[in-house]
Amino acid sequence: MQHTSHLLMIQPVHFSFNAETAVNNSFQNKSDQANVQAKAREEFEQFITVLRAHDIDVTVVEDTPDPHTPDSIFPNNWISFHEDGSICLYPMFAINRRLERKPSVLTAIQQKFVIGHTNDFTSYEKDALFLEGTGSMVLDRDKKITYACLSPRTNQQVLDEYCKKMQYQGVSFVAVDEAGAPIYHTNVMMCVADDYVVICLDSIKDPNEQQLVKQSISNSGKIIIEIDFNQMNHFAGNMLQVHNTKGEKFLVMSSQAYHALTPKQVETIHSFNQIIHSDISTIETNGGGSARCMMAEIFLPLK
């Protein structure tokens, strides 16, 4: 199944601007706002409330103050969970983000779900080769396709290894922002749902690569909802489709992303599923990630 009703989210303890990730994340800006951690915690709690109000199951694990992990609120970069009972651990670009792989997270998951085996790709860190989970890759789980824009955080060799081990077909390409810099994570420029794909095609400058992506989406039976650079910059590509305990489908995004969409785009999305959004502007500004980055989908079997 493309979407799940179970999510892992990490409650921040010391959320802050991370200088180690800012070197290649153009979405990230250090704000002058006071009490960033307190505001991020408030936004996090409200986001959880909104999700649970729609009967979506969220496993919340509170981060630990030691070791210091300012980006722990974005767990989808270091771990993913799969229907066959496997988990994947990923090589991370920023040294302080590697510390997010804390045993307490897996302990909490194992209280509710069955983990069969682990696919550990973290050894690539010693060679400075990275693949940051479902940030680097946007998965079409139904069709077993991995979409990935190559960047300092998304390496082709590690991507090929992932696709081989997980039996996915890789579709890789180069995507850049308006300044021509590589987009750091694929999940800020595209979102794959069950019947549609939200994508900033303008970011794929090579005509052949753009056609490759469009053809792959078409062959998978999905329609394209195209967003522009301005919408992408407001995190309108950073969305995640989920369903609730009643089987109702939703597209989850930030309020900033929602307000960047046109009425026609909203209408098209609503023809497939409802929309959930919440204000996480402090997290977006300082962390350079949005709603999708905060949610790691859990496809593991329940205990």
Rank of each mutant, 00 (worst) to 15 (best):
M1W: 00
T4N: 05
H6A: 01
L7E: 03
M9W: 11
M9H: 05
I10A: 07
Q11N: 02
Q11A: 12
H14Y: 09
H14L: 15
F15N: 10
E20R: 03
Q37H: 05
A40C: 14
R41N: 15
F44N: 11
I48N: 08
T49A: 13
T49I: 01
V50A: 13
L51T: 14
D57H: 07
V58D: 09
E62A: 11
D63P: 13
P70A: 03
P70V: 03
D71Q: 00
W78Q: 07
I79E: 01
I79S: 08
F81Y: 03
E83G: 00
I87R: 14
C88R: 01
N96C: 13
L99R: 08
P103A: 11
V105P: 00
T107R: 06
I109F: 01
Q110K: 13
K112H: 15
I115K: 01
T118P: 15
N119C: 12
T122A: 05
K126R: 04
K126Y: 06
A128G: 00
L129S: 08
L129D: 15
G135Q: 01
M137I: 15
V138D: 08
R141D: 00
D142Q: 10
K144C: 06
I145V: 10
C149Q: 13
C149W: 04
L150Q: 09
L150D: 14
S151V: 08
R153W: 02
N155I: 04
C163Y: 04
K165V: 13
Q167S: 09
Q169D: 08
Q169W: 01
V188Y: 07
V188Q: 04
Y196V: 09
C200L: 02
D202Y: 07
I204S: 01
K205D: 07
D206I: 02
P207R: 12
Q211M: 02
Q215R: 14
Q215A: 13
I217T: 08
N219F: 05
S220C: 08
I227P: 01
I227A: 02
I227D: 04
N230Q: 12
H234T: 12
M239C: 06
M239Q: 13
N244H: 00
T245H: 01
K249T: 04
K249H: 07
M253G: 08
S254C: 06
Q256Y: 02
Q256F: 15
A260T: 10
E267A: 06
H270F: 00
Q274S: 13
I275W: 01
S278Q: 14
T285L: 12
N286V: 14
G288Q: 10
M294S: 04
E297G: 05
